[in-house]
Nucleic acid binder design. Sequence first.
DNA 1: TTAATAATGAAAATGGTTTTCATTTTCGTT
DNA 2: AACGAAAATGAAAACCATTTTCATTATTAA
Lengths: 151, 151
Amino acid sequence: MGHCHKWGQKFIDFGFRLTAARECIFEILLKTDAHLSAEDIYMAIHKINPAIGLTTIYRTLELLEQNGIVRKFEFGHGRAKYELNEEYEGKKHHHHLICEKCHKIVDYSEFVKEEKEYIKKAENGLEKKYGFSIKDHLIDFYGICPDCKKE
Amino acid sequence: MGHCHKWGQKFIDFGFRLTAARECIFEILLKTDAHLSAEDIYMAIHKINPAIGLTTIYRTLELLEQNGIVRKFEFGHGRAKYELNEEYEGKKHHHHLICEKCHKIVDYSEFVKEEKEYIKKAENGLEKKYGFSIKDHLIDFYGICPDCKKE
DNA sequence: TTAATAATGAAAATGGTTTTCATTTTCGTT
DNA sequence: AACGAAAATGAAAACCATTTTCATTATTAA
Ligand SMILES: [Mn+2]
Ligand SMILES: [Mn+2]
Ligand SMILES: [Zn+2]
Ligand SMILES: [Zn+2]
């Protein structure tokens, strides 16, 4: 385990140990472009290392989230979904398109310029008016996906 | 129960019965400007009519949600929160400012003009590119509220 | 009034997530 | 290499918001 990607070093710097389970969970998140639940990850990891338990998945995901390595989403369809923070994937800043029927989640990165303009203005104004220190934002669009429209 | 506000008529038109419990839940949502959980509503209703059970609260909220009368939010702090749809309150279109520490939720209605511009452009573009029929959107800002900053 | 249907409360079940606890692994120090 | 403290782990149990079940009650239309 001597190599240590940049995230691994960051992880160690935080004071945590870089175990097989943790590396494996990170790798799974890195390879996918989907939004995985804890159980999705558990099933994926089970093929590689059946000894790793679901509890460890939950614990690792919480750890990763608290240290800004993964983002946790509660879209309200039963289970939380996780994805690697944008800086760790090749991904750009993005938001989500959510199908109200089949619960499919699609990333989109369009209209960033317009978004930035609106967000910057809103953030500044809201910080001033409501006294919040704003750190993050979330934009979701809800609708019906093309597959579900066919039915 | 002969009077029947506009929402009540709408409710009956949908084919449902306008019972005491349902009216009471609606009234509670109408009077508050907070974002209530099912249990918040249960506790509020309990003082007025202790016979109404928590199950009815959940069932009514689901019914109201499915018919566009209330909006359900899963902010990810354990329990879902409900608020009356904008058209039923005196409220304008609004979004949320969420404190990551104390989980306080603040409504804001500022920057609607800028928001509309961005949303319209994004919606049109995304519908075209991803084939979704977009029906709704959600914008949240996350940060630290003024009270939590003091500590 | 009557019968069909809808709504209800209490209790039990559900299911994703967290906690507990005994055991194992890791890592800095000998 | 061996040691010992601290961290990480898995299995099982607990948790807890929400849903389901089911027997009873309320509402409605005829
Ligand atoms: Mn995403
Ligand atoms: Mn609100
Ligand atoms: Zn769909
Ligand atoms: Zn706060």
